[in-house]
């Protein structure tokens, strides 16, 4: 009975945050609601959303991937480099895509092995591999960028076509979110992902090989970075080593806003989608409000901190039933345990 109330509250709160932002825009700049701008927002939500789905899995198992932006850049550069140097045919794109996917899998395995087997802190490792991948992408492009010219073929259509009059990136985002959501909600794999994140030692003692799960989740995370990177490239029609740079921070913050626990074991797809929604809107708001570019980063930071604080605060006041937190005694007036 109590459960339902609290559940409703979480969504009421999320709705409230969105309503406030939209209200600001209603006053601030109505062209925010123009069809063209809404389309822009949806596109960036789609990119963030796709990558959020992957990062969610990594975070659920207690990991973090700060190389996500670089992975997106690296894999899209590989794909585009092959595509560009082999006549920009559809078959060249498919080969390039396969190469990119393989690269993403390799990156994911590298992250997973460093974290789960070599016990290196994932923050540091992924920060370092992020630099590495950025460097490799720069090296492949010799510091330049690839600007595509043809507006035909499969690759162009990824971001520039519609299905049931919905832009393709949104469709891809929905498909990725639904797949990850279904995996988390209905498969044994999903159940075990949560278990590994909630308590690794206990997971081992119920026969779950926690390391394999952690590596697996890093691989999925890198794969979504690859998908996100290629969709983004198709959208911009240009790629360089700085493609998607800094996205990992927005994604991480989006997930935290969406209620995921950075220590693992807590979070869901609905929260991730909400977080991506917020990230896309906030990013666009800054531009639309014509905030001096000198301050825009700071404003973005403040909005995110407020949203996170609101979210975390609410989780604490509704302590216990919806979002229990680890060892935060004293902050929550919990009943005697």
């Amino acid at each position: 009975m109590k459960n339902k109330n609290v559940f409703a509250n979480v969504w009421a709160q999320r709705g409230l945050i969105l309503a406030v932002l939209l209200l600001i825009m209603l006053i601030g700049n109505r062209s925010f609601f123009s069809l063209g701008n809404l389309r822009t927002i949806l596109m960036s939500i789609a990119i963030y959303g796709i990558m959020c789905c992957g990062m969610l899995l990594a975070m659920l198992t207690g990991g973090i991937d700060l190389a996500m932006g670089s992975t997106a850049a690296f894999t899209s550069v590989i794909c585009l480099w092959y595509y560009n140097s082999h006549g920009m045919t559809d078959s060249a794109f498919v080969v390039g895509l396969v190469l990119a996917v393989l690269a993403a899998i390799a990156v994911g395995i590298l992250h997973g092995v460093c974290d789960a087997y070599l016990m290196l802190p994932s923050f540091v490792v992924t920060l370092a591999t992020g630099k590495l991948l950025y460097g490799l992408a720069s090296a492949i492009l010799k510091g330049s960028f690839i600007h595509l010219t043809n507006t035909e073929g499969f690759f162009y259509r990824i971001a520039n076509s519609k299905l049931f009059s919905i832009p393709m990136p949104i469709i891809i985002f929905i498909v990725v979110a639904v797949i990850v959501g279904l995996i988390l909600a209905f498969t044994v794999f999903g159940r075990r992902v949560y278990a590994v994140g909630a308590n690794r030692a206990a997971a081992e003692l119920v026969g779950i090989n926690s390391r394999v799960f952690r590596v697996g989740c890093y691989v999925i995370c890198s794969l979504t970075a690859c998908v996100g990177g290629i969709v983004l490239t198709s959208m911009n029609y240009v790629t360089s080593a700085t493609t998607a740079q800094g996205y990992e921070m927005m994604i991480m913050l989006a997930l935290v806003v969406g209620g995921a626990d950075i220590m693992g074991g807590y979070g869901d797809i609905a929260g991730a989608v909400f977080g991506a929604l917020l990230a896309g809107i906030v990013e666009n708001m800054i531009v639309m409000l014509n905030i001096n570019t000198n301050y825009s980063q700071a404003v973005q930071g403040i909005i995110i901190v407020l949203a996170v604080a609101f979210n975390v605060y609410n989780n604490r006041t509704s302590a216990g039933l919806t979002k229990p937190r680890k060892k935060k005694a004293g902050l929550t007036a919990r009943k005697e345990v």
């Binding site: 949560y194 278990a195 909630a198 308590n199 206990a202 626990d261 074991g265 807590y266 979002k323 229990p324």
Partner: peptide, 13 residues
């Protein structure tokens, strides 16, 4: 606490 239960998961899970 450290090896038995999954603290934030439900009784069911």
């Amino acid at each position: 606490r450290t090896e038995g239960f999954f603290p934030q998961l439900s009784i069911l899970r």
